Amino acid sequence: MSRPTPNARDRILTAANKLFYSEGIRAVSLDNIAEKAGITKKTVYYHFKSKDDLVEAYLVSRDQPNLTLYRKWFSEADGGLPDKVAAIFFQIAVSARHPKWKGCGFLRTAAELANMPGHPAMKVGAAHKKKFETWLTEEFQAVDLEQPEALARHIVLLLDGAFSTILVHRDADYAEAAGNAASALVLGAMQKGPVAGKPSVKSMG
């Protein structure tokens, strides 16, 4: 059975994903995207009112797939909570060793738009990072760790630091080092015991 032909908007977004991620948003023009998508520039403007609109849509299209992938790496990892958190970093290290890997698309876009804090894409990127942080917080709350919000924020800082440092040094080992640090943070929080007044995870089993 043949696959349905992607509509024009989907083709534009696919082309934008490939070009914006590989070359950066400032280096890519709407002409480049139209050519990559095999359509006219007029068609691009029919679906997206401006390049800024398309950059925003590009990040929106990456939001849920990325979050779903993080959750998958976490849930499928063997071991306890520290191992599951570390697995996210270790999988990023695997991805970073691929020649086409160019880092976190959200962070790279934020860097290119650093002088435009009100840009719609900046808001999408901030929301994406906050969703990841909130999800981690909920995972830590589920096992009654103390200060789950602070712990989740520390993990986010390690993750985004790893993304940036890998690009500087071109060395994926930094993601593994950050993963080990994240694992140690989670283990330390677990060793402090559950929140006062709540039964431990073991006693609830």
Score class of each variant (00 low, 15 high):
Trp73Thr: 03
Trp73Phe: 15
Trp73Glu: 06
Trp73Ile: 03
Phe74Glu: 01
Phe74Ala: 05
Phe74Ser: 05
Phe74Trp: 04
Ser75Met: 08
Ser75Glu: 10
Ser75His: 09
Ser75Trp: 06
Glu76Thr: 15
Glu76Trp: 13
Glu76Tyr: 10
Glu76Met: 13
Glu76Asn: 13
Ala77Ile: 09
Ala77Leu: 09
Ala77His: 08
Ala77Trp: 10
Ala77Glu: 11
Asp78Ile: 00
Asp78Asn: 04
Asp78Ala: 13
Asp78Thr: 06
Asp78Glu: 11
Asp78Cys: 04
Gly79Ala: 03
Gly79Gln: 12
Gly79Leu: 13
Gly79Lys: 10
Gly79Asn: 05
Gly79Asp: 07
Gly80His: 00
Gly80Glu: 00
Gly80Tyr: 00
Gly80Gln: 00
Leu81Tyr: 11
Leu81Lys: 05
Leu81Ile: 13
Leu81Glu: 07
Leu81Phe: 12
Leu81Asn: 04
Pro82Ile: 00
Pro82Lys: 01
Pro82Val: 00
Pro82Phe: 01
Pro82Ser: 01
Pro82Glu: 02
Asp83Gly: 02
Asp83Lys: 02
Asp83Trp: 04
Asp83Ser: 06
Asp83Gln: 12
Asp83Cys: 05
Asp83Ile: 01
Asp83Glu: 12
Asp83Leu: 02
Lys84Ala: 09
Lys84Tyr: 03
Lys84Cys: 04
Lys84Ile: 06
Val85Asn: 05
Val85Pro: 03
Val85Ala: 09
Val85Asp: 04
Val85Thr: 10
Val85Leu: 04
Ala86Pro: 02
Ala86Glu: 06
Ala86Tyr: 02
Ala86Leu: 00
Ala86Ser: 07
Ala87Glu: 14
Ala87Asn: 12
Ala87Arg: 11
Ala87Lys: 12
Ala87His: 12
Ile88Gln: 11
Ile88Tyr: 05
Ile88Glu: 06
Ile88His: 06
Ile88Ala: 06
Ile88Phe: 06
Ile88Cys: 12
Ile88Asp: 08
Ile88Trp: 03
Phe89Arg: 03
Phe89His: 04
Phe89Lys: 01
Phe89Ser: 00
Phe90His: 15
Phe90Glu: 14
Phe90Val: 11
Phe90Lys: 13
Phe90Trp: 14
Phe90Tyr: 15
Gln91Asn: 10
Gln91Ser: 08
Gln91Met: 14
Gln91Asp: 06
Gln91His: 13
Ile92Met: 12
Ile92His: 14
Ile92Trp: 11
Ile92Leu: 15
Ala93Phe: 08
Ala93His: 05
Ala93Ile: 10
Ala93Pro: 09
Ala93Thr: 06
Val94Ser: 00
Val94Tyr: 03
Val94Cys: 00
Val94Ala: 02
Val94Asp: 04
Val94Glu: 06
Ser95Asn: 04
Ser95Lys: 06
Ser95Val: 01
Ser95Asp: 04
Ser95Tyr: 02
Ser95Trp: 02
Ala96Met: 15
Ala96Ser: 15
Ala96Phe: 14
Ala96Trp: 13
Ala96Ile: 13
Arg97Ile: 08
Arg97Asp: 15
Arg97Glu: 15
Arg97Gln: 14
His98Leu: 05
His98Lys: 03
His98Gln: 05
His98Cys: 00
His98Tyr: 03
Pro99Val: 11
Pro99Asp: 10
Pro99Trp: 09
Pro99Ser: 07
Pro99Glu: 10
Pro99Asn: 10
Pro99Gln: 04
Lys100Trp: 05
Lys100Ile: 08
Trp101Gln: 13
Trp101Ala: 14
Trp101Asn: 14
Trp101Ser: 07
Trp101Asp: 14
Lys102Thr: 11
Lys102Tyr: 11
Lys102Cys: 09
